[in-house]
């Protein structure tokens, strides 16, 4: 009995000593971690940084490789959701646009990979890099525009939409360029008598990279303008629709913009 008590006390003392050492003297410090282990807020910042770097360089294979560090089967929806979230939280618009652009561009055909970002050396290597004493300025990377520069977009169609599956009245916007290709990152301004807001195309790539929408409040009249257009659409209100069973619900609008060919 006494022997067992001594063993128990020794165990408790050992435990206390171990915990004291582990928590006080030499606590765990995380080093050599991977981006996949980042806390949620840091992860969001990291993904935004990937998008911002892509926005500046247009290097899609590298962006893909950087995103491959995270366990996303398809990172596009996560990026699009993050763009919306950061826009709603008041982060800089440029970041949301970059995220939306990357989300949209990732849905294009995969480009040949140029290596993993996890191992920077695997990126484009130079045989014998040498550091110069005096830094040589390099030309700034060309920024790829998010929408095709040229003539202002024109309103192609303005159609009321009665779709009970939408769940709420929406202002739906589709933007295509002169070739009929969807344009992500196009800014749409929405103004009503007591306020204004804006949104971008491409934040819901599953619905099309040139698509964007905005929830309409019943009874309010809106004016909508694509920022790259000189043609505002006025007097938009959520119309009334009738379902098959006779119930009434607020309808939506679908606006289609296209850039005229020069």
């Amino acid at each position: 009995m006494k022997g067992a008590f001594v063993l128990l006390v020794a165990l408790a003392l050992g435990l206390a000593a171990g915990l004291g050492y582990a928590w006080g003297v030499n606590p765990v410090s995380y080093t050599d971690t991977s981006p996949a282990s980042l806390r949620d807020d840091f992860r969001s910042d990291y993904l935004t940084l990937v998008a911002s770097a892509y926005d500046a360089t247009g290097d899609l294979p590298r962006a893909r490789a950087r995103l491959a560090l995270f366990a996303y089967a398809d990172p596009s929806p996560a990026l699009a959701a993050l763009a919306q979230q950061r826009l709603a939280q008041g982060w800089p618009e440029a970041e949301a646009r970059a995220l939306a652009r990357l989300a949209a561009d990732l849905q294009g055909p995969p480009a040949p990979s140029s290596g993993s970002p996890a191992s920077p050396p695997a990126a484009v290597r130079t045989p014998t890099p040498t550091r110069t004493a005096t830094p040589v300025p390099s030309p700034a990377p060309t920024r790829t525009p998010t929408s095709t520069p040229g003539a202002p977009f024109r309103l192609l169609a303005q159609d009321p939409v009665c779709d009970p599956d939408l769940g709420q009245p929406l202002l739906q916007v589709e933007v295509v360029d002169a070739a009929g290709l969807p344009v992500p990152g196009a800014e749409v301004r929405v103004v009503w008598d007591t306020g204004q807001d804006h949104f971008f195309t491409g934040l819901k790539p599953d619905l099309g990279v040139g698509y964007g929408d905005f929830t309409l409040a019943p009874g309010i009249t809106y004016t909508v303008q694509l920022v790259d257009s000189d043609q505002p659409v006025t007097g938009l209100t959520a119309g009334e629709c009738v379902a098959d069973d006779g119930t009434r619900y607020a309808g939506s609008w679908l606006l289609r913009f296209q850039q005229p060919s020069r």
């Binding site: 806390r39 770097a53 926005d55 920077p120």
Partner: peptide, 28 residues
Amino acid sequence: YVDTAPGSLRSDYRTDYVLMVAQAYAGD
């Protein structure tokens, strides 16, 4: 490892992080 901070990234990831910052800076 979960909920880590960028400061604990391995040196290659850390370098890539700084490179991304530099690339974004070159753009904006």
